[in-house]
Amino acid sequence: MGSHILLIEDEPNITEALRYILQREGYRVDTHSDGASALETIRERRPDMVILDVMLPHRSGYDILRDLRAEPTHADLPVMILTARGQDKDRDLATRYGASRFMTKPFSNAEVLATVRELLAR
């Protein structure tokens, strides 16, 4: 049984692509598309890892990340930020809030898979 990955992303086509490549590798993938209820979903589903978009409806991925890290149970949960905003200040912000990895769109499937493997291996 593969690890459990929660994908928080509101763009349906990107969701579908990621789900496809992750499932092909044997991971169990859950998806969620709304910012406001994302935190709650993470608490409920207890994934092994989270892939988090930034520009989500109702709540930014940064805010979600910051709140998530404030909870002791989630201090070490691997979180990969995957965003279309690729400026340095975005990367800095993600790091400051405690992202495990920061990747920009468009991404290479192989790179995503490699990063996921690495994060889950830790």
Partner: peptide, 22 residues
């Protein structure tokens, strides 16, 4: 503006790239 236009261009390109790789 920059981050917007970057976002607007990158989002469809992500899907295109991911699916063409698939």
């Amino acid at each position: 503006f920059l981050s917007q236009i970057s976002h607007e261009l990158r989002t469809p390109m992500s899907s295109i790239r991911a699916f063409s790789e698939i």
